[in-house]
Each structure stands twice: as C-alpha cells, then as structure tokens.
C-alpha cells in the first residue's frame, strides 16, 4: 500500500473543443425529432388500421351505426343500397384505404352522433379541450413545482408530510371519483361553483361564465395528474440536493434559496420534462373522464359519445388524433430535454 505513486487517472489538460454554440444543440434536437417522427408515422398507420380491423371483427353492423333507429325499419333493398354507397360491404382494408385517402384530401366523413361533418366537430370542440387541458396542465405543473420544491427543501417537515401523504392518497383515486367528489362537495354541497356545462343554462357565452365553469373541471383534472408530477419533482430534487455540485454551492456561501432554485432544481427538472411527456396519455384519459362528468363540450367527451353511439367516422379520427397528440407530446418533451441539457447535445 503505497501512498502516492499509484498512477492517478490522467486528465488531459489540452483545452477541449471550443464551447458549442446553441446552434449545435438545435441541430441535435432536429436530428432527434426527425428520428422520432419516422417512428410516429408507422404507429399512426397501424393504430388507425387496427381500429378498422377491430371494427370489421365486431358483431355490430356498421349500417346499424349509420342508420341508427331507422336500421330496424329500413327495407333490405334500402340497406343494400346504402351499404353499397358507404362501401361497408367491402373488405376492411379497402375501407381503410378509402378513409386514409379521404383523410389526406381533408375529407374526414360525417359524424352521425353530432349530425355534422367530422371536421366541424373537431373545429368546434378542440378549442375547449385545449383550454381545459392547458389550464389543468399549467396548474398541475405549477403546483407540483412549488409544493414539490418546498417538500424536498424542508424534507420531513409538516408541509412535506402533509403533501406527500395527500399525494399518495390521491394516486389511489381515479379521476372520475375525484370529479364526482368535487361535484358533490363544491357544486352541490357548498354551491360555490356550477355543476357542469360551459355556461349556465340559457346564459350567453362570456369569459366570466366560461371561467366560472372552468374552475372545477380544471382543478379536478389538475388534481388527478398532480401526485405523479409532484412526487417526481420532490424525488429528483432530493437526489439533486445530495449532489457534489449542490454541496459545493452551499460551501461557497450561497443563500439556501440560490442553492435550491439555481443549482439543485435545474438538474432535477431534466427528468421532470421527460415525465411530462410520458404522462400525456394519462392527461388524455383524465380529460375524457373530466369532460364526461362535467359535460364539458370538448373532444374528449366526444370520444365517449362517439363510442356509446358507435359513431365510427368520428371515433376513428379521434383515436388517430389522440395518438398523434400523445406521440408528438412525448417527442416535444424529448426535444426539450436535448435543448435543456447541454451534455446531451455534446454527445451528438
């Protein structure tokens, strides 16, 4: 056991390549995005094709879906004529091909349950869904960051204990139960907020009306996503607080707030960005349930309506759209990661 002359790992002191300009990071992000997009397209094709294949295997006659109650009364000739027009008699892959062709030329078909072209349903409902999910996600992320940081910085304190156990409990409650509980308590019990809808019955569509009706669904959707986000922030921050870099920052005499917010948090937030991308499917699921319970006139509610009423053209488009949104969201999260972490871009 000698003291000194074990060969130390040699570190070359020749300065490495000059600092990489931000351009390099953007280029790396672009490469990643292209690679991931190559994955998105086949998934979308397979998923939408799968919907058609499953529909073909189902015992339901698509004509029944198209005709609704008239199905029982329509004559066989009439049925055959309509089947011919719709092309439902042909193999599913041909129908799928037609549908894809229509999709590319902007013809999405007609939704029976809403009595409108599918494109119009989307145009009317998408903004409300974006409003609800956007506000909820913002609320959830903000709360997760604030309370998660606080819990981790004051680990073991009463705030931490209350926040952590609330989150663990909330994780076990499905979104629709949170929604029902919130309705029972805040709308029916305390009568603070409206039960459902976008506006009061007969009221005009004003910002105030929508805002009042948005509070409860947005809070419920945020609460259903919060535990995962918050516990993740807390966990990564606790890990980051034990880093050498954080200890060194503290040793330098920096204020504790600087140590936590400017040294531990930036490192801890990197995995959080990825988590946000990974949680998108759950956000969609939550939106479906929350819109359904609160009769929020968004796309997620239309998913349920089109499924219950077997409105196939709408259901297929919504499936495709949701899948695309989730894939693009996680792609965006990964790209953001590359842009935020200087080390990733350096690896090429």
């Amino acid at each position: 056991m000698t003291l000194t002359e074990l060969p130390a790992p040699r570190v070359d002191d020749a300065a490495p390549a000059a600092p990489r300009p931000p351009r390099v990071r953007w280029r790396a992000a672009g490469r990643l995005a292209r690679r991931r997009l190559l994955f998105v397209v086949p998934v979308l094709v397979v998923v939408s094709g799968g919907v058609f294949a499953v529909a073909d295997a189902s015992p339901f006659d698509p004509l029944a879906g198209y005709l609704g109650d008239r199905y029982l009364t329509a004559s066989e000739q009439a049925q055959a004529r309509i089947a011919d027009e719709l092309g439902t008699g042909r193999p599913w892959w041909q129908q799928y091909g037609d549908w894809l062709g229509g999709l590319l030329t902007g013809d999405l078909g007609v939704s029976r349950s809403f009595g409108q072209p599918v494109a119009q349903v989307l145009a009317e409902r998408l903004p409300w869904t974006l409003l609800l999910t956007g506000v909820s996600l913002g609320l959830a992320v903000l709360t997760a960051l604030l309370l998660g940081t606080w819990s981790a910085a004051r680990r073991g304190g009463w705030v931490d204990r209350v926040v952590t156990s609330t989150c663990l409990l909330l994780q076990a409650v499905p979104p629709f139960v949170i929604a029902l509980g919130a309705v029972a308590l805040f709308a029916l019990g305390l009568a603070w907020l409206p039960v459902a809808g976008l506006t009061d019955a007969g009221a005009e569509l004003t910002v105030g009306q929508v805002a009042r009706h948005l509070v409860l669904p947005a809070a419920v959707l945020a609460a259903s996503q919060l535990p995962w986000l918050l516990l993740n922030v807390r966990q990564s921050l606790l890990a980051a607080l034990a880093d050498d870099a954080v200890l060194a920052a503290r040793a330098r005499g920096l204020a504790e707030s600087t140590v936590v917010l400017r040294h531990a948090l930036p490192t801890a937030l990197l995995p959080f960005v990825t988590l946000l991308g990974a949680r998108l499917p759950e956000l969609v699921v939550g939106a479906v349930l929350v819109e359904e319970v609160f009769s929020w006139p968004g796309l997620a509610q239309a998913v349920v309506t089109s499924a219950v009423e077997l409105d196939f053209p709408l259901l297929a488009v919504l499936t495709l759209l949701t899948t695309a949104a989730v894939l693009l969201g996680s792609l965006l999260a990964d790209v953001a990661y590359v842009l935020l972490d200087p080390r990733v871009a350096a690896d090429g």
Partner: peptide
Amino acid sequence: RVVDGVNAVPHLLLGIVLVALFR
C-alpha cells in the same frame, strides 16, 4: 418498437374502442 407503439396510445382510448365495438 411494438411495445413502444402500444405504450404511446392512451390505454383507455384503446379500451373504449374495443369495448364500444363489442358492447
């Protein structure tokens, strides 16, 4: 890749489609 693909689709949505068609 298939596993990634299945994970990318919101599970409830797939469930809704399947269950709606085999009510």
